[in-house]
Amino acid sequence: MNLLEFARGPAFNFALIVFVFGVVWRLAGLFLQWRRRDLSKPRQHNLIVAGTRAMLMRSLPPHELEKHIVFQHMSGYAWHIAWFISLLFFAPHLPFFKQFLGFAWPALPNWISLGAGAVALALLLTLVIRRATNPVLKQISTWDDYISVVLTILPLATGFLAYGRLLPIRYETLLALHLLSICALLVWYPFGKLMHLFLTFPSRFQAGALLGRKGVEA
């Protein structure tokens, strides 16, 4: 078994099992853990509105800090969107999704999906360097932050290396490294901050609903 066979077979299989198990475990653990019944009188009855409002409003930068965090905020949105464009609309990726879903969707022209990938890669590298050098960000960063961002960068970087044959290494080795970087991402996903993909909006909704019940506009 060569490296590519290992990456496409046992490694990916293991990563997928860990990913599914971990994500379902964490989601079930959180969603089945009902809060205690609150016997106080609710200040607001329509908690769905309160939750939805918080979910949307907290997706915008707080007005007071807007000027100071505009780069952080906008670059965060930009790389997320660009990353998902390159993941979901780069033509060679579509057979990957089709094997699970049984269907695929039209790809974007390569110059768009590759351009999006380049934007995501550049922004992610800038942000991780900034995190490591900015005194405030450095203070509030943990290993989880660095591991999560590096594991997000690696599939992009190895993808470009494989597609463009940017290193004097055989293509199958580069493709295997690309797949292994995805495996690493999947394995880490449920246990680190990357889990925010599944938890960001539910937690914002819940915070908004709870605060709304107490009459606080979140």
Partner: peptide, 23 residues
């Protein structure tokens, strides 16, 4: 760009185990 994954039964089993652990 496809992989040799274990199929829906395997994923279902992983999800069921995850749900049990979460519960």
């Amino acid at each position: 760009s496809t992989t040799q994954w274990g199929g829906y039964a395997q994923i279902g089993a992983a999800a069921a185990a995850g749900a049990a652990a979460g519960a």
